[in-house]
């Protein structure tokens, strides 16, 4: 198991752009290809966005399917209330991109 400190990897505690998520994706991919399991450490981050989670977690789930849960663990993600929600959303969006949620229903009403 190799721990990737995301803040150290991307050089900032502000993981707010997609580009940083893709850096995490590349790093995790390279470790997994070497046969290692990966622990992604979020604890030194101060800010994240959905775009960051989609690019990192969403794409890792897309690549490995349910094997993702064996290959990649996360820690420090409970530092902020909504990070777990963003993590789960990134995975769920890949699992079922067409599945509408509360937000989709509310927004679709605006366009009726």
């Amino acid at each position: 198991m190799t721990t990737v400190n995301i803040a150290h990897l991307i050089g900032t505690s502000n993981a707010i752009i997609q580009k940083f998520g893709l850096q995490v994706l590349d790093k995790a991919n390279s470790l997994i290809e070497r046969g290692e399991n990966v622990e992604l450490y979020f604890g030194d981050l101060s800010n994240t966005t959905t775009g960051f989670f989609h690019a990192s977690i969403g794409n890792l789930y897309r690549a490995y399917g349910d094997q993702f849960f064996n290959l990649v663990t996360v820690s420090g993600i409970d530092k902020k209330e909504d990070w777990t929600e963003k993590y789960e959303e990134a995975i769920n969006l890949v699992k079922n991109p067409k599945k509408a949620n509360e937000i989709d229903f509310a927004i679709s009403k605006l366009f009726e």
Partner: peptide, 22 residues
């Protein structure tokens, strides 16, 4: 875009704008 679509495949959906609207 506001409905959550994205022109970037690797972004897996542009949910940021949608969430702000919500």
């Amino acid at each position: 875009a506001i409905k959550g679509n994205s022109t970037k495949e690797e972004a897996s959906g542009g949910t940021g704008l949608k969430k702000i609207l919500f």
